[in-house]
Write a protein that binds this DNA or RNA. Structure first.
Lengths: 146, 146
DNA sequence: CTATATGGACAAGGAACTTGTCTAATGGGG
DNA sequence: CCCCATTAGACAAGTTCCTTGTCCATATAG
Protein backbone atom coordinates (compact mmCIF):
# COMPACT_ATOMS: atom_id res chain seq x y z
CA UNK A 1 0.00 0.00 0.00
CA UNK A 2 2.85 2.34 0.66
CA UNK A 3 4.22 1.60 -2.72
CA UNK A 4 3.10 5.12 -3.55
CA UNK A 5 5.36 6.76 -1.01
CA UNK A 6 8.26 4.50 -1.95
CA UNK A 7 7.77 5.21 -5.63
CA UNK A 8 7.98 8.95 -5.20
CA UNK A 9 11.24 8.54 -3.28
CA UNK A 10 12.58 6.24 -5.99
CA UNK A 11 11.81 8.70 -8.77
CA UNK A 12 13.47 11.52 -6.86
CA UNK A 13 16.55 9.45 -6.06
CA UNK A 14 16.89 8.23 -9.61
CA UNK A 15 16.45 11.69 -11.04
CA UNK A 16 19.03 13.12 -8.69
CA UNK A 17 21.65 10.61 -9.69
CA UNK A 18 20.78 11.04 -13.36
CA UNK A 19 21.29 14.79 -13.14
CA UNK A 20 24.63 14.28 -11.44
CA UNK A 21 25.86 11.75 -13.98
CA UNK A 22 24.82 13.84 -16.96
CA UNK A 23 26.50 16.88 -15.50
CA UNK A 24 29.69 14.93 -14.80
CA UNK A 25 29.69 13.47 -18.31
CA UNK A 26 29.20 16.86 -19.93
CA UNK A 27 32.00 18.34 -17.81
CA UNK A 28 34.38 15.54 -18.73
CA UNK A 29 33.73 16.18 -22.42
CA UNK A 30 35.10 19.69 -22.08
CA UNK A 31 32.02 21.70 -21.16
CA UNK A 32 32.92 22.40 -17.56
CA UNK A 33 31.38 25.85 -17.67
CA UNK A 34 27.85 24.48 -18.04
CA UNK A 35 25.55 23.73 -15.13
CA UNK A 36 22.49 21.46 -15.04
CA UNK A 37 20.06 24.33 -15.44
CA UNK A 38 21.67 25.28 -18.75
CA UNK A 39 20.62 21.96 -20.24
CA UNK A 40 16.96 22.82 -19.91
CA UNK A 41 17.57 26.09 -21.71
CA UNK A 42 19.31 24.19 -24.51
CA UNK A 43 16.26 21.95 -24.86
CA UNK A 44 14.00 24.91 -25.54
CA UNK A 45 16.44 26.82 -27.73
CA UNK A 46 17.19 23.78 -29.88
CA UNK A 47 13.45 23.48 -30.61
CA UNK A 48 13.72 26.74 -32.54
CA UNK A 49 11.72 29.98 -32.55
CA UNK A 50 12.65 30.83 -28.98
CA UNK A 51 12.79 34.35 -27.63
CA UNK A 52 14.08 35.18 -24.16
CA UNK A 53 10.50 35.49 -22.95
CA UNK A 54 9.66 32.04 -24.35
CA UNK A 55 12.66 30.66 -22.56
CA UNK A 56 11.59 32.28 -19.29
CA UNK A 57 8.21 30.61 -19.47
CA UNK A 58 9.76 27.25 -20.37
CA UNK A 59 12.13 27.41 -17.38
CA UNK A 60 9.54 28.79 -14.99
CA UNK A 61 11.59 31.84 -14.05
CA UNK A 62 11.24 35.59 -14.62
CA UNK A 63 12.24 36.95 -17.98
CA UNK A 64 15.04 38.91 -16.28
CA UNK A 65 16.51 35.67 -14.99
CA UNK A 66 16.21 34.15 -18.46
CA UNK A 67 17.88 37.22 -19.98
CA UNK A 68 20.83 36.85 -17.60
CA UNK A 69 21.13 33.18 -18.43
CA UNK A 70 21.05 33.95 -22.16
CA UNK A 71 23.67 36.66 -21.70
CA UNK A 72 25.93 34.13 -19.99
CA UNK A 73 25.41 31.51 -22.71
CA UNK A 74 26.11 34.08 -25.43
CA UNK A 75 29.26 35.23 -23.65
CA UNK A 76 30.46 31.63 -23.38
CA UNK A 77 29.77 31.00 -27.06
CA UNK A 78 26.91 28.51 -26.84
CA UNK A 79 24.06 30.71 -28.06
CA UNK A 80 23.64 33.56 -30.51
CA UNK A 81 20.94 36.19 -30.88
CA UNK A 82 19.50 36.70 -34.35
CA UNK A 83 17.01 39.35 -35.46
CA UNK A 84 13.37 38.34 -35.36
CA UNK A 85 11.85 38.37 -38.84
CA UNK A 86 8.55 39.94 -37.84
CA UNK A 87 9.17 41.76 -34.54
CA UNK A 88 11.82 44.44 -34.24
CA UNK A 89 11.73 44.22 -30.43
CA UNK A 90 12.44 40.53 -30.21
CA UNK A 91 15.56 38.47 -30.85
CA UNK A 92 15.49 34.82 -31.86
CA UNK A 93 17.83 32.57 -29.93
CA UNK A 94 19.85 29.88 -31.69
CA UNK A 95 22.54 27.42 -30.68
CA UNK A 96 26.01 27.94 -32.10
CA UNK A 97 28.03 24.96 -33.32
CA UNK A 98 29.56 24.82 -29.83
CA UNK A 99 26.04 24.81 -28.41
CA UNK A 100 25.11 21.85 -30.59
CA UNK A 101 28.29 20.05 -29.55
CA UNK A 102 27.36 20.51 -25.89
CA UNK A 103 23.88 19.18 -26.65
CA UNK A 104 25.36 16.08 -28.25
CA UNK A 105 27.63 15.62 -25.25
CA UNK A 106 24.64 15.83 -22.90
CA UNK A 107 22.71 13.31 -24.98
CA UNK A 108 25.64 10.94 -24.93
CA UNK A 109 26.03 11.31 -21.17
CA UNK A 110 22.32 10.67 -20.68
CA UNK A 111 22.51 7.51 -22.79
CA UNK A 112 25.54 6.33 -20.85
CA UNK A 113 23.78 6.92 -17.54
CA UNK A 114 20.72 4.96 -18.61
CA UNK A 115 22.55 2.13 -20.35
CA UNK A 116 23.12 0.08 -17.16
CA UNK A 117 19.39 0.15 -16.51
CA UNK A 118 18.78 -1.88 -19.65
CA UNK A 119 21.19 -4.52 -18.42
CA UNK A 120 19.69 -4.62 -14.97
CA UNK A 121 16.10 -4.92 -16.13
CA UNK A 122 16.43 -6.89 -19.33
CA UNK A 123 15.11 -5.77 -22.68
CA UNK A 124 11.44 -6.56 -22.06
CA UNK A 125 11.11 -4.81 -18.73
CA UNK A 126 13.14 -1.89 -20.01
CA UNK A 127 10.71 -1.33 -22.88
CA UNK A 128 7.78 -1.59 -20.52
CA UNK A 129 9.39 0.98 -18.28
CA UNK A 130 9.73 3.42 -21.15
CA UNK A 131 6.13 2.81 -22.17
CA UNK A 132 4.84 3.24 -18.62
CA UNK A 133 6.72 6.47 -17.98
CA UNK A 134 5.54 7.82 -21.32
CA UNK A 135 2.01 7.34 -20.09
CA UNK A 136 2.78 9.25 -16.94
CA UNK A 137 4.79 11.98 -18.59
CA UNK A 138 3.52 15.48 -17.99
CA UNK A 139 2.45 17.40 -21.07
CA UNK A 140 4.24 20.63 -20.10
CA UNK A 141 7.85 21.65 -20.49
CA UNK A 142 10.70 19.91 -18.73
CA UNK A 143 11.34 22.26 -15.90
CA UNK A 144 13.57 21.22 -13.11
CA UNK A 145 17.22 20.78 -12.57
CA UNK A 146 19.37 18.48 -14.42
CA UNK B 1 17.48 2.54 -29.87
CA UNK B 2 16.88 5.98 -28.51
CA UNK B 3 14.69 4.71 -25.80
CA UNK B 4 17.61 5.51 -23.54
CA UNK B 5 17.60 9.20 -24.34
CA UNK B 6 13.83 9.38 -24.08
CA UNK B 7 13.87 7.57 -20.76
CA UNK B 8 16.24 10.02 -19.15
CA UNK B 9 14.04 12.91 -20.28
CA UNK B 10 10.97 11.13 -18.91
CA UNK B 11 12.55 10.57 -15.51
CA UNK B 12 13.60 14.21 -15.31
CA UNK B 13 10.19 15.48 -16.36
CA UNK B 14 8.38 13.21 -13.95
CA UNK B 15 10.67 14.14 -11.10
CA UNK B 16 10.23 17.83 -11.78
CA UNK B 17 6.49 17.62 -11.65
CA UNK B 18 6.63 15.43 -8.57
CA UNK B 19 8.75 17.97 -6.74
CA UNK B 20 6.37 20.74 -7.72
CA UNK B 21 3.27 18.84 -6.61
CA UNK B 22 4.76 17.81 -3.28
CA UNK B 23 5.84 21.37 -2.61
CA UNK B 24 2.40 22.71 -3.49
CA UNK B 25 0.70 20.12 -1.29
CA UNK B 26 2.94 20.88 1.66
CA UNK B 27 2.32 24.60 1.23
CA UNK B 28 -1.43 24.13 1.10
CA UNK B 29 -1.32 22.20 4.37
CA UNK B 30 0.06 25.23 6.14
CA UNK B 31 3.80 24.83 5.72
CA UNK B 32 4.36 27.61 3.26
CA UNK B 33 7.71 28.51 4.76
CA UNK B 34 9.31 25.23 3.62
CA UNK B 35 11.09 24.77 0.33
CA UNK B 36 11.83 21.53 -1.54
CA UNK B 37 15.41 21.34 -0.28
CA UNK B 38 14.15 21.27 3.30
CA UNK B 39 12.42 17.97 2.68
CA UNK B 40 15.72 16.24 2.03
CA UNK B 41 17.04 17.56 5.32
CA UNK B 42 13.94 16.21 7.08
CA UNK B 43 14.62 12.79 5.58
CA UNK B 44 18.06 12.63 7.17
CA UNK B 45 17.08 14.20 10.49
CA UNK B 46 14.12 11.89 10.91
CA UNK B 47 16.47 8.92 10.58
CA UNK B 48 18.01 9.94 13.90
CA UNK B 49 21.58 10.46 15.11
CA UNK B 50 22.19 13.35 12.75
CA UNK B 51 24.68 16.12 13.41
CA UNK B 52 25.01 19.18 11.20
CA UNK B 53 28.08 17.61 9.58
CA UNK B 54 26.13 14.42 8.84
CA UNK B 55 23.42 16.51 7.27
CA UNK B 56 25.94 18.36 5.12
CA UNK B 57 27.26 15.10 3.72
CA UNK B 58 23.74 13.79 3.10
CA UNK B 59 22.76 16.92 1.19
CA UNK B 60 26.05 17.21 -0.66
CA UNK B 61 26.77 20.75 0.51
CA UNK B 62 29.37 22.33 2.79
CA UNK B 63 28.81 22.10 6.51
CA UNK B 64 28.44 25.87 6.64
CA UNK B 65 25.51 25.66 4.24
CA UNK B 66 24.02 22.87 6.34
CA UNK B 67 24.49 24.93 9.49
CA UNK B 68 22.61 27.85 7.95
CA UNK B 69 19.80 25.55 6.89
CA UNK B 70 19.59 24.05 10.39
CA UNK B 71 19.56 27.52 11.91
CA UNK B 72 16.62 28.43 9.70
CA UNK B 73 14.71 25.24 10.54
CA UNK B 74 15.33 25.77 14.27
CA UNK B 75 14.16 29.38 14.02
CA UNK B 76 10.99 28.27 12.26
CA UNK B 77 10.31 25.61 14.86
CA UNK B 78 10.80 22.45 12.81
CA UNK B 79 14.05 21.22 14.33
CA UNK B 80 15.71 21.32 17.73
CA UNK B 81 19.32 20.86 18.80
CA UNK B 82 19.96 18.45 21.65
CA UNK B 83 23.27 17.79 23.39
CA UNK B 84 25.27 14.89 22.02
CA UNK B 85 25.64 12.15 24.66
CA UNK B 86 29.29 11.39 23.92
CA UNK B 87 30.71 14.47 22.17
CA UNK B 88 30.60 17.87 23.83
CA UNK B 89 31.34 19.59 20.53
CA UNK B 90 28.44 18.11 18.60
CA UNK B 91 24.70 18.65 18.77
CA UNK B 92 22.16 16.02 17.79
CA UNK B 93 19.39 17.23 15.51
CA UNK B 94 15.80 16.15 16.07
CA UNK B 95 12.44 17.05 14.55
CA UNK B 96 9.96 18.89 16.75
CA UNK B 97 6.31 17.90 16.70
CA UNK B 98 5.82 20.59 14.04
CA UNK B 99 8.67 18.98 12.10
CA UNK B 100 6.94 15.61 12.22
CA UNK B 101 3.67 17.21 11.14
CA UNK B 102 5.41 18.70 8.10
CA UNK B 103 6.92 15.31 7.32
CA UNK B 104 3.47 13.71 7.42
CA UNK B 105 2.15 16.47 5.16
CA UNK B 106 4.93 15.80 2.65
CA UNK B 107 4.25 12.07 2.71
CA UNK B 108 0.59 12.68 2.10
CA UNK B 109 1.33 15.08 -0.76
CA UNK B 110 3.71 12.53 -2.30
CA UNK B 111 1.06 9.81 -2.09
CA UNK B 112 -1.51 12.12 -3.66
CA UNK B 113 0.86 12.99 -6.50
CA UNK B 114 1.55 9.34 -7.27
CA UNK B 115 -2.01 8.09 -6.85
CA UNK B 116 -3.10 8.95 -10.43
CA UNK B 117 -0.21 6.88 -11.75
CA UNK B 118 -1.77 3.75 -10.29
CA UNK B 119 -4.99 4.47 -12.13
CA UNK B 120 -3.23 5.20 -15.41
CA UNK B 121 -1.09 2.08 -15.36
CA UNK B 122 -3.29 -0.41 -13.62
CA UNK B 123 -2.33 -2.37 -10.55
CA UNK B 124 -0.05 -4.90 -12.26
CA UNK B 125 2.06 -2.46 -14.23
CA UNK B 126 2.24 -0.14 -11.23
CA UNK B 127 3.71 -2.89 -9.08
CA UNK B 128 6.19 -3.76 -11.79
CA UNK B 129 7.19 -0.13 -12.03
CA UNK B 130 7.93 0.00 -8.31
CA UNK B 131 9.92 -3.24 -8.55
CA UNK B 132 11.89 -2.03 -11.57
CA UNK B 133 12.78 1.32 -10.05
CA UNK B 134 13.80 -0.39 -6.83
CA UNK B 135 16.32 -2.37 -8.85
CA UNK B 136 17.69 0.83 -10.35
CA UNK B 137 17.67 2.83 -7.13
CA UNK B 138 21.03 4.22 -6.12
CA UNK B 139 22.37 3.07 -2.78
CA UNK B 140 23.40 6.52 -1.58
CA UNK B 141 21.40 9.32 0.01
CA UNK B 142 18.55 11.06 -1.74
CA UNK B 143 20.22 14.23 -2.79
CA UNK B 144 18.58 16.47 -5.22
CA UNK B 145 15.91 19.06 -5.19
CA UNK B 146 12.42 18.60 -4.37
C1' DC C 1 -4.44 57.36 -33.83
C1' DT C 2 -4.53 56.46 -29.32
C1' DA C 3 -4.32 52.99 -25.55
C1' DT C 4 -2.67 48.90 -23.88
C1' DA C 5 0.36 44.97 -24.03
C1' DT C 6 4.80 42.91 -24.88
C1' DG C 7 10.16 42.08 -25.62
C1' DG C 8 13.96 43.33 -23.65
C1' DA C 9 17.49 46.28 -21.01
C1' DC C 10 19.13 48.34 -16.70
C1' DA C 11 19.59 48.55 -11.72
C1' DA C 12 19.23 47.20 -7.03
C1' DG C 13 18.16 43.80 -3.53
C1' DG C 14 17.82 39.22 -1.50
C1' DA C 15 18.38 34.21 -0.75
C1' DA C 16 21.34 30.40 -0.68
C1' DC C 17 25.49 28.86 -1.36
C1' DT C 18 30.71 29.19 -1.23
C1' DT C 19 35.68 29.89 0.80
C1' DG C 20 38.36 31.12 4.68
C1' DT C 21 39.33 31.38 9.49
C1' DC C 22 38.68 30.47 14.29
C1' DT C 23 37.73 27.95 18.90
C1' DA C 24 36.83 23.97 21.54
C1' DA C 25 36.68 19.20 22.07
C1' DT C 26 38.14 14.52 20.65
C1' DG C 27 41.13 10.55 20.23
C1' DG C 28 45.21 7.99 18.51
C1' DG C 29 50.35 7.35 19.13
C1' DG C 30 54.43 8.23 21.52
C1' DC D 1 49.77 11.17 30.34
C1' DC D 2 50.47 14.40 26.92
C1' DC D 3 50.98 16.04 22.21
C1' DC D 4 48.90 16.89 18.01
C1' DA D 5 46.31 16.00 13.96
C1' DT D 6 41.33 15.73 13.30
C1' DT D 7 36.61 17.11 13.75
C1' DA D 8 32.05 19.85 15.14
C1' DG D 9 30.53 23.97 14.86
C1' DA D 10 30.47 29.31 14.83
C1' DC D 11 31.58 33.64 12.58
C1' DA D 12 32.51 36.60 8.61
C1' DA D 13 32.86 37.89 3.89
C1' DG D 14 32.20 37.14 -0.94
C1' DT D 15 29.86 34.94 -5.10
C1' DT D 16 26.08 33.36 -7.76
C1' DC D 17 21.63 33.27 -9.28
C1' DC D 18 17.27 34.79 -8.85
C1' DT D 19 13.96 38.35 -7.62
C1' DT D 20 11.30 43.01 -7.83
C1' DG D 21 10.94 47.41 -9.88
C1' DT D 22 11.46 50.58 -13.60
C1' DC D 23 12.06 52.13 -18.22
C1' DC D 24 12.02 52.39 -23.44
C1' DA D 25 10.86 50.80 -28.05
C1' DT D 26 7.81 48.28 -30.71
C1' DA D 27 3.51 45.90 -31.68
C1' DT D 28 -1.43 45.36 -31.83
C1' DA D 29 -6.42 46.13 -30.76
C1' DG D 30 -10.18 49.20 -31.04
Amino acid sequence: MDDALALSALVLALSGRLVQEIHDGVSRQGFGDLRPAHGFAFVRISMGDATTADLAEHLGVTKQAAAQLVEELVRKGYVERRPHPRDARARLLALTETGWAATRAADQAARAAVAPWRDLLGEARFSELVADLTLLAPPGPIRPAW
